[in-house]
Computed example of a mutant assay.
Amino acid sequence: MQVLYTASATSTGDGRSGHVRTADGILDLDLVPPKEMGGAGGGANPEQLFAAGYAACFHSALRAVARGTKADVTDSAVEAEVGIGPNGAGGYGLTVALVVDLPAVERAAAEELMSQAHQVCPYSNATRGNVEVALRLRAAA
């Protein structure tokens, strides 16, 4: 694979209770475990960062696929819900639900666009076989 871009971020402190910063300084955040995991909450956490990245990446893939079909993706949106919990083997695992709004696209066509985007999106390709990812259509014409 020819790498087109590389992002670099460093975690310091205590990981989930630490700090992350990208090499270019654009992202510079303290991390706080959510209350549901025994933390104080009220701050950023790795699952939020993953959800934001996956939502943006999948939305981009969806719009790229839609361009090829000339589908109207006006007012489209993608929400990524990332869950974390014990995996039953002494570690933790993630789940993802991608909730897609395609209000100007007929349901069958919207489902096909989601399926195609799931094959194109780098996050989907990286998680396939490792993370349970559910595709859900929230709104369609």
Rank of each mutant, 00 (worst) to 15 (best):
M1N: 15
Q2C: 10
Y5M: 00
S8K: 15
A9W: 07
G13V: 02
S17I: 00
R21W: 03
R21S: 11
A23V: 05
D24T: 05
I26L: 15
I26K: 10
D28I: 07
D28L: 12
L29E: 08
D30Q: 12
L31W: 00
P46F: 05
Q48R: 05
A56Q: 10
C57S: 09
A61S: 14
L62F: 04
R63F: 02
A64W: 03
A64I: 07
V65H: 06
V65F: 02
G68M: 02
V73P: 03
A77E: 03
A77C: 09
V78H: 10
V82L: 08
V82S: 07
I84C: 13
P86T: 09
N87L: 09
N87T: 02
A89C: 08
G90M: 14
G91A: 15
G91I: 04
G91R: 14
G93R: 13
L94N: 12
V96C: 15
A97H: 13
L98K: 09
V105W: 05
A108R: 04
A108L: 14
A108G: 04
A109V: 03
E112G: 13
M114N: 00
S115E: 09
Q116N: 12
A117V: 02
Q119W: 03
C121F: 08
P122A: 10
Y123N: 00
S124A: 11
A126M: 08
T127G: 04
T127K: 06
R128M: 01
G129V: 05
N130Q: 11
N130H: 09
V131E: 11
E132A: 15
V133M: 10
L135Q: 01
R138H: 06
